[in-house]
């Protein structure tokens, strides 16, 4: 059983992803904003973080940067966002995002990307 942290403020999207990923036997924790996410990350370990870019309090970029630079976490990060501006996306990769999925998204695609990212991580740690 792998655990995933989902950072998302849209309730509908939250619920949908939760159900999709539960079906694949992942354990899901949900943070509604960047601050809550930081608390979760300090308390427990995750195998994957899925985050939106536009969040209240602290945006997704800030969260990613803090995870990499302050908490020194190497957990894979998947960004799920409606933003398609190329500059924003490349900037995300620069600061440590591993994969980017555009909203609206295809649930099976999300499931397969999540699977791949987690497998990669497992492989790397062995």
């Amino acid at each position: 059983m792998y655990s995933i942290l989902l950072v998302e403020d849209d309730e509908f999207v939250c619920k949908a992803i939760e159900i999709i990923l539960r079906k694949q036997d992942y354990i899901i924790s949900i943070a509604k904003n960047g601050q809550d996410a930081m608390q979760y990350l300090q308390q427990s370990k995750f195998d994957l973080v899925i985050t939106d870019l536009m969040l209240p309090y602290a945006n997704g970029m800030e969260l990613v940067s803090k995870m990499r630079n302050e908490l020194h976490l190497d957990v894979p990060i998947l960004v799920l966002s409606a933003v398609t501006h190329e500059k924003t996306i490349t900037e995300g990769f620069d600061i440590g995002v591993d994969d980017y999925l555009k909203k609206p998204f295809n649930p099976s695609e999300l499931a397969s990307r999540v699977k791949r990212l987690i497998q990669q991580k497992v492989k790397n740690t062995i």
């Binding site: 960047g34 536009m54 969040l55 209240p56 309090y57 602290a58 945006n59 800030e62 933003v83 398609t84 501006h85 924003t88």
Partner: peptide, 11 residues
């Protein structure tokens, strides 16, 4: 400033 940076807008 942090709340201004978190505005919902792409650019």
């Amino acid at each position: 400033v942090r709340s201004l940076l978190a505005l919902n807008y792409p650019r």
